[in-house]
């Protein structure tokens, strides 16, 4: 105790050095931990990147123009572009009211629209394949 009382500065310095050394060890350990977790995350990111690449490739494969063309021709009624000369004059339509005589054209109620039945798309060799089928033919030779 006397030693501590007589050498306050020295004791402070010793404790400070020990404390700082301990702090340094803790900090360095944390740095290693962070390094490890960053490396782990990098590896996970790399795996995810490969997954994303596969998904992007799959998306590009599924949205190929010929495939979309095939699907649209099967399920969407084709709409021709509005040509410059396609705008024609519309004459006013005259029709009779319900009180009009029977000789006049009667107003008929509109038919309830019925769903349009379309045939399933024709399967062709390349376009009907799904992505995994394609991957199954991507394999190369030795």
């Amino acid at each position: 105790m006397i030693f501590f009382k007589n050498n306050k500065l020295l004791c402070f310095l010793i404790f400070a050095v020990v404390g700082a050394g301990f702090g340094l060890v803790v900090v360095s350990q944390k740095v290693y931990d962070v390094q490890r977790s960053v490396k782990k995350m990098s590896r996970e990111a790399l795996v995810s990147e490969w997954d994303i690449r596969s998904l992007k490739a799959e998306l590009a494969y599924l949205t190929r123009p010929d495939r979309l063309d095939q699907i649209s021709s099967a399920f969407v009624r084709s709409i021709s572009p509005a040509a410059g000369n396609s705008i024609s004059m519309v004459a006013p339509v005259s029709f009779s009211l319900s009180s009009a005589s029977s000789s006049d054209v009667a107003i008929l109620p509109l038919k309830k629209p019925r769903p349009i039945l379309v045939s399933a798309p024709q399967k062709t060799n390349a376009s009907s394949k799904n992505f995994s089928d394609l991957l199954n033919v991507v394999g190369g030779d030795e």
């Binding site: 199954n136 991507v138 394999g139 190369g140 030779d141």
Partner: peptide, 10 residues
């Protein structure tokens, strides 16, 4: 090498 570029099913 037996085969390079295997398909997932292979």
């Amino acid at each position: 090498w037996i085969k390079r570029g295997l398909t997932p099913s292979e």
